[in-house]
Amino acid sequence: MTTPEWLKPGIYGALLGAAFVGIVGFSWGGWMTGGGADKMASEMAQDEVIAALVPFCLDRSRTDNERIAKLATIREASSFKRRDAVMEAGWATMPGSDGPNRELAQACIEGLELDAS
């Protein structure tokens, strides 16, 4: 099939325009793929779950009989080892889970610092 000469500029313009709109939309327009949206939703859900569990972690720290010794251990630990100290204290382990949650331990540290002051 041959395309008339007068139609070729319109076809080229439509193709270039579509490519331009796609590039601008995904770069600056805020468009995203389904996989990107799923990843963002999963991260947001995880963040919200951790935020909801921080009061549980803080409550476990308040009711722990060895609270003072464990808090001293956490305070003495270097800043990058504090999360491990909270995990070893058992405050970041949820009932029914196999082990402590690293993100919950980090969020709990921030709550403990607010709680201690």
Rank of each mutant, 00 (worst) to 15 (best):
L71V: 08
I74G: 01
P55I: 12
P55E: 12
M44D: 10
R102Q: 08
T93H: 00
P95R: 02
R60F: 04
A85Q: 07
E103Q: 13
G36H: 14
E43W: 11
M87S: 09
G99M: 07
G90F: 01
E48N: 08
L71F: 11
G17N: 07
A72Q: 14
L7W: 13
T63L: 03
E5C: 02
G25V: 12
R83I: 05
P55W: 08
G10P: 03
G30Y: 03
D84W: 00
A52L: 11
A77Q: 11
R83C: 01
E43D: 15
W31L: 15
V21Q: 07
K39Y: 14
D47W: 02
R75N: 11
M32L: 14
R82I: 02
R83G: 03
G25Y: 10
G17M: 09
P4W: 04
I109A: 00
E43A: 15
R82S: 02
A69Q: 10
M87N: 02
K70R: 11
D84L: 03
M44L: 14
D38Y: 15
S78E: 15
V24T: 13
V21L: 15
C57Y: 01
I23K: 11
G34D: 15
A116I: 13
M94P: 00
Q46R: 13
E43Y: 14
N65A: 12
C57P: 08
G13P: 02
K70T: 09
F80L: 10
I11C: 07
G99C: 05
A41Q: 10
Q106M: 11
A89D: 06
I50P: 00
V49F: 03
P55H: 11
L112R: 00
